[in-house]
Amino acid sequence: MAAFALEVSGVAKRFGALTALRDVNLHVSRGEVLGLLGDNGAGKSTLVKVICGFHRLDSGQILVDGEPVSLRGVDHARSLGIDTVYQDLALVNELSVYHNMFLNREHRMGPLLNNRLMRRLAESHLHAMGVDIPDVTIEAAKLSGGQRQAIAVARSVYSDARILLLDEPLAAMGAKEATIILDLVADLKARGDVAIVIIAHNYAQALQVCDRINILQQGTITFDRPASETSVTELTDLMVAAYRTRRRDETGRA
């Protein structure tokens, strides 16, 4: 069997006394979209930040194309083709739209930035996505929430990433903008060479775009099934049941 594009094996991450991830195992193949669901505080964003090199893992292993990698930082992960759309979007308000789109991946001519090329590429990428931003030279501060999210997604999608992590890419989106992102994910999936992990809150959207669903609860994966074999009702029930159990345990202990 071919190696997974990304495999996470027995990963744990602690912040002082707080255990964010206990024993996480997941995998995703090229051309596959994995939906990662879970309550607030279940560790989804921490998991993404471990995979993208932002946090060091305490134990366990990350494998890219079957090869174990020890990520030294975001730069290193990027060089391996892992790119991330963060929940906070990582945009710099003071910079123009096109500088944000090429942040830390700037095109240069000698020592100087090649602003003309970056401006042109930014315009054509956004146009291809169907995002309506009249002027890519305006500061990111002036954009609406949905536009900011679109910029952040465009930045990663056009980075030639082979493993794409999207942390709540639809959070601030209106219906039209959400469709843009979902279509984009569908296009990438159709290309077949990108492995995608999406963190989502909206189960219906997740089922619509994902091939497989994982649920992360209290720092570990508790559910792994193809999207076609589950439903919004089942996912909701699972979440609620987990919440009820936890509440019963806690009140029982008290």
């Binding site: 710099v92 910079l95 830390n104 020592p111």
Partner: peptide
């Protein structure tokens, strides 16, 4: 007009975001 300048602005404008961007 250089990366250093752009990264200096990013470091001050959004330190967390700049770190997330590598």
């Amino acid at each position: 007009r250089t990366r250093w300048g752009l990264h200096t602005i990013s470091a001050g404008g959004n330190p967390l975001g700049a770190t997330e961007a590598g």
